[in-house]
């Protein structure tokens, strides 16, 4: 569904991703793990059209190269950005409404309301807080809203950037359980995490990113057994543990 081939990304002249190749199949939960500044956020933003890039990038057979972020969302690919990035002074209802921004022109109000109900089923707490300012909610609720807002665009592929960041373990469990539920409803998921243990538990497959390169990939269950993965995501030098193999 998502095919990334030899993708590099740049900030000015600095290269933050070098030749990343990976894919996500329809119906999968794939996780991308890596330490601080490995380039995880850069990869998601490159996919979404926010960062300058070269290489090949295709979603459902259509190339995403050179498309603006607002066009890419319309193709069915939404990002839940790192740090939630809510419209903090606006209400929960407004945040959700804006999530569906591109759909109002083409789709019926009923279709959008149906998705709103779907979000409330997933996160019932949001329904009680529709009139509350997004920025005044708790961290966990904000993360739920960020996911809900992304879902309002009715994505076929959902990209999440460190949804566990700064949340209590029990809240993280809850949110990740929702991701499995979403997958059962037909949403494909690419989950970026630093919290490898948690991410590998829900994912089918995983990639490990280090200083802008994919250094390891495989079935999540296998990587979870792999002691070296723990090291990799802690940011140890790759050589250190490949040489020991």
């Amino acid at each position: 569904m998502l095919k990334i081939k030899n993708l590099s990304a740049y900030y000015g002249s600095v290269r933050a991703l070098s030749g990343v190749t990976m894919h996500v199949r329809e119906g999968e939960i794939v996780t991308l793990i890596g330490a601080n500044s490995a380039g995880k956020t850069t990869l998601l933003n490159a996919i979404c059209g926010l960062v300058r890039k070269d290489g090949d990038l295709a979603f459902a057979g259509q190339s995403l190269m050179g498309l603006a972020p607002e066009v890419i969302v319309g193709l069915g690919l939404s990002q839940v950005p790192e740090g939630r990035q809510l419209f903090a002074p606006m209400t929960v209802a407004e945040n959700l409404e804006l999530g569906a921004y591109r759909r109002y022109r083409k789709e019926s109000k009923a279709a959008i309301n149906a998705d709103l109900e779907r979000v409330f089923q997933l996160f019932p707490r949001l329904k009680d807080r529709l009139a509350q300012q997004a920025g005044t909610m708790s961290g966990g609720e904000q993360q739920m809203l960020a996911i809900g807002r992304a879902l309002m665009a009715r994505p076929r592929l959902l990209l999440l950037d460190e949804p566990s960041l700064g949340l209590a373990p029990i809240v993280v469990e809850d949110i990740l359980a929702r991701l499995s539920q979403l997958r059962a409803e037909g949403v494909t998921i690419l989950l970026v995490e630093q919290n490898a243990r948690v991410a590998l538990k829900v994912a089918d497959r995983a990639y490990v990113l280090e200083t802008g390169r994919i250094i390891l990939s495989g079935a999540a269950a296998d990587l979870l057994q792999d002691r070296q993965v723990t090291r990799a995501y802690l940011g140890r030098d790759y050589k250190e543990f490949t040489e020991g193999r």
């Binding site: 903090a88 002074p89 591109r102 665009a153």
Partner: peptide, 22 residues
């Protein structure tokens, strides 16, 4: 909706683009 989109852009341009606001 357009007015809200303008406010959203003012609060967080990057997030606004991610939800599809030009």
């Amino acid at each position: 909706l357009v007015g809200k989109a303008m406010r959203a852009c003012a609060y967080n341009t990057r997030a606004a683009r991610l939800v599809g606001i030009a």
